[in-house]
Design a protein around this nucleic acid. Structure first.
Length: 472
RNA sequence: GGCGUCGUACCCAAGUGGCUUAAGGGAGCAGUCUGCAAAACUGCCAUUCAUCAGUUCGAAUCUGAUCGACGCCUCCA
C-alpha cells in the first residue's frame, strides 16, 4: 500500500508525509472570521480539511486539530476603503461585536456539522489569547524585527532574508496599492502590522492595552500565537485557502520563524476556490449562497458534500445548480444502490482476498494527495461487481464512507412489504383485481392513490407485486 | 505591471511519459421487462485530451509559442 503523500505548497510537489512525533499529527487550520455566515465557497475549505483529517485518521494517526475563530476585526482606516468586518457587522445588526461573534460562531459550527465535517479538537478564539499575541510581538521587538509608525507596530520584512519563500514572491514585481490605498509610513511594501492603535478619539468595542498603546492585534499574529501555543514552535500541517499563500501564511511564517528561529510548519496545504460563472464567490460582492440557501431550494447538505467530492481539492470547482443537480442524482443513485444491496440479507462475508484488494485500491487513491474522486470510482466498482456478495460490499462501503462522510451507513434497506398500513394493502389488492379484469384505468387510479399516500407498487413477473415506501 | 493556476466527451471529472487507441458520475439514446408506468438490468455515448510546433522508439502527460478562463498582489476559504 502506498504511503500518504501530500502536496506541499513549500516545495510545490507531493511529499511523503512524516509526522514529527510518530503516530500523532499536529494540524492547524485557519478558521472563519465570524462577522457573517459562511458561504458555500468558504465551506469548501473546511470540507477539504475534513477529508485530510479523515485520511490521516484512516492511516491510524491521532490528529490534534486546532482551528482559530477570528472574532477580532482587523482592517480599519479613516478612508472608506478599509473596514473592520466585525464592527461593520455590529453596526449592521445593532448588536455588540461580542454578540455578533457568538452568533456567527454558532452558525458556523452548525454549518459544518450539517456537512458532516468533523469538529476540530480545539477551537480557539483570537480574543482569548491577546496576551500570547502581545508576547509574540514583544519577542519580535526584542529581536529587532519591528518598527512603529503613527498607526501601529510593523514587521520589517526586509530583515528576514527568506521572506516570501512560501509564495515564491517576486517582491519587486508586487504593485503596492494596486487595489487599495496604503500607509505611506511603511518602509517596504510587504511590511505588515503586528499591533494596530485604536484611532485617536475613537473608542472601539474591542481594544486592549499593550506596551505600545491601546489597540488591537494585527492581521496575522493570532494564527502564529495560537498555533504555537497549542501545537508547538514547529508542527506538522497548516492549511487554509489558496488566497492565504501570498500574505497571511507568508506573514505567519515570517513572524513565527523570526521569533523562534526554527521552521514553523513542515507541510502547507491549500484548498482551491469554488467559483461561480463570473468568478469567485465572495461575501463583499453581496448575494452569496449558504448551506441554508441550498436547503431552502430542496437540496440536502450532503448533496453539496457529494458535489465537492467530485473534484480534487487543488482544482477550482465551478458551482451551478445544474452541477449540483448532477451531484444530487449521483448521490441518490448511490444510496438506492446501497439500499438494494442491503435488502439482500442472506449473505455473509466470503471473499476476504478481493475485499482486501479493493480496500487497498481505495487506500492508494486517498493516500495519493487525497484523490477522493478516483476513490469514488472504486466505490462504484465495488457496488457493481458480481464478484463480491452483499455483505462484503456493505463492509467496504462503510469502510470507504469513513472518508466520504456521506452517511452511507444510514441508508436503509428497501422496505418491501414491511409494516405497510392495511389501507395501502387493501388498495394494492384492489389494483391487482382491476388489472386481472383488464380494467387498467381503474388500476392506474388505485396506483395513484397509493402513491399519494407515500407508497409505490413494483410489479414483478407473474402478476405479483411489491409495495415499498416512496423514496422521496 | 508582476506572480501563479488551469483548459480532457453534452455537463462534472480521474489520469501527468508505455498497464489507458483516456476511469468514474450526471444527462441522453436504444433494448430487456411491463397493459402502461416506475424501478432494475444490458448496450451505446472522446482514434481523442484548447491550438500549433518540437523532444522521444513512444505524449493527454515533457518543452516552446499562441489562444482562452481564472486567482493573488486589500481583508478574503
Amino acid at each position: 500500500m502506498k504511503k500518504l503523500t501530500l502536496f506541499n505548497t513549500l516545495s510545490r510537489s507531493k511529499e511523503v508525509f512524516e509526522p514529527i512525533e510518530p503516530g500523532i499529527v499536529k494540524m492547524y487550520c485557519c478558521g472563519p472570521t465570524v462577522y457573517n455566515y459562511a458561504h458555500i465557497g468558504n465551506l469548501r475549505s473546511y470540507f477539504f480539511e475534513d477529508i485530510l483529517k479523515r485520511v490521516l485518521l484512516f492511516n491510524d494517526y491521532k490528529v490534534n486539530h486546532v482551528m482559530n475563530i477570528t472574532d477580532v476585526g482587523h482592517l480599519v482606516s479613516d478612508e472608506d476603503e478599509g473596514e473592520d468586518k466585525m464592527e461593520k457587522g455590529s453596526a449592521r445588526e445593532g448588536k455588540t461585536v461580542w454578540e455578533i461573534a457568538e452568533y456567527y460562531t454558532e452558525a458556523f459550527k452548525n454549518d459544518i456539522a450539517q456537512l458532516n465535517i468533523l469538529p476540530p479538537t480545539i477551537y480557539c478564539k483570537a480574543t482569548d489569547y491577546i496576551n500570547e499575541q502581545i508576547d509574540l510581538v514583544k519577542c519580535l521587538e526584542a529581536k529587532g524585527y519591528t518598527y512603529t509608525t503613527s498607526d501601529g507596530v510593523y514587521f520589517d520584512t526586509l530583515k528576514l532574508s527568506d521572506y516570501g519563500k512560501l509564495a515564491r514572491l517576486d517582491i519587486e514585481g508586487l504593485e503596492e496599492g494596486r487595489r487599495i490605498e496604503f500607509s505611506d509610513e511603511k518602509k517596504h511594501k510587504t511590511d505588515f502590522a503586528l499591533w494596530k492603535f485604536s484611532p485617536k478619539g475613537q473608542k472601539r468595542q474591542m481594544e486592549w492595552d499593550s506596551p505600545w498603546g491601546i489597540g488591537f492585534p494585527g492581521w496575522h499574529i493570532e494564527c502564529s500565537a495560537m498555533s504555537i501555543k497549542f501545537l508547538g514552535k514547529t508542527f506538522d500541517i497548516h492549511c487554509g485557502g489558496v488566497d492565504h499563500i501570498p500574505i497571511h501564511h507568508t506573514n505567519e511564517i515570517a513572524q513565527s520563524e523570526a521569533c523562534y528561529g526554527v521552521k514553523f510548519v513542515n507541510y502547507w496545504l491549500h484548498g482551491e476556490f469554488l467559483i461561480e460563472e463570473k468568478g469567485k464567490m465572495s461575501k463583499s460582492a453581496g448575494g452569496f449562497l449558504r448551506i441554508q440557501t441550498l436547503i431552502d431550494k430542496g437540496y440536502s447538505p450532503l448533496d453539496y458534500r457529494f458535489f465537492l467530492l467530485m473534484t480534487h481539492y487543488r482544482k477550482k470547482i465551478k458551482f451551478s445548480f445544474e452541477n449540483l443537480d448532477a451531484a444530487r442524482n449521483g448521490y441518490n443513485n448511490l444510496k438506492s444502490k446501497i439500499a438494494e444491496i442491503k435488502s439482500d440479507k442472506n449473505n455473509k462475508p466470503d471473499n476476504e482476498e478481493l475485499v482486501d484488494k479493493y480496500r487497498g485500491e481505495f487506500f492508494d487513491c486517498i493516500n495519493d494527495d487525497l484523490n477522493v474522486t478516483e476513490a469514488l470510482a472504486v466505490l462504484w466498482d465495488v457496488l457493481k461487481t458480481e464478484d463480491l456478495n452483499p455483505a462484503d460490499k456493505l463492509f467496504l462501503t462503510e469502510e470507504f464512507d469513513k472518508i466520504f462522510g456521506l452517511d452511507l451507513d444510514k441508508v436503509e434497506a428497501l422496505e418491501i412489504n414491511v409494516t405497510i398500513p392495511p389501507d395501502i394493502v387493501e388498495l394494492a389488492k384492489k389494483r391487482k383485481e382491476a388489472k386481472l379484469n383488464k380494467d387498467f384505468k381503474l388500476a392506474d387510479e388505485y396506483r395513484n392513490q397509493i402513491k399519494e399516500k407515500g407508497y409505490d407498487i413494483l410489479d414483478i413477473k407473474g402478476g405479483e407485486y411489491q409495495i415499498i415506501k416512496n423514496k422521496e
